[in-house]
């Protein structure tokens, strides 16, 4: 169907944005810059997974996106705590 093709194209575009964000991940002069780039990539990956779930008709990909969102949030909090220099 036509709508599914649209979801697939949108997911491909989001993957392109992930590569743009990777530029900041590689270039970022300070460590917080890289952490922000990683956080952005996580959000983009969650959106991509949901779109792929619709495009391929696999609901399980959306479930993976939920778990990925929660785990990446915890990872971000731990990176932030590490940057502050406090105890983990």
């Amino acid at each position: 169907m036509i709508a599914e093709l649209g979801f697939l194209v949108a997911a491909a575009v989001l993957v392109g944005y992930v590569f743009v964000s990777m530029g900041r991940l590689a270039a970022g002069p300070t460590t917080p810059d890289r952490a922000v780039a990683l956080d952005t990539i996580n959000t983009l990956v969650v959106a991509t997974m949901v779109l792929l779930g619709a495009a391929l008709g696999q609901v399980v990909l959306v479930d993976v996106a939920i778990v990925y969102a929660l785990l990446s949030f915890i990872a971000t909090l731990y990176i932030a705590r590490h940057l502050e220099g406090g105890p983990l």
Partner: peptide
Amino acid sequence: ALARAAHRA
């Protein structure tokens, strides 16, 4: 959390 960590760093 990242903004606060950046400022504290």
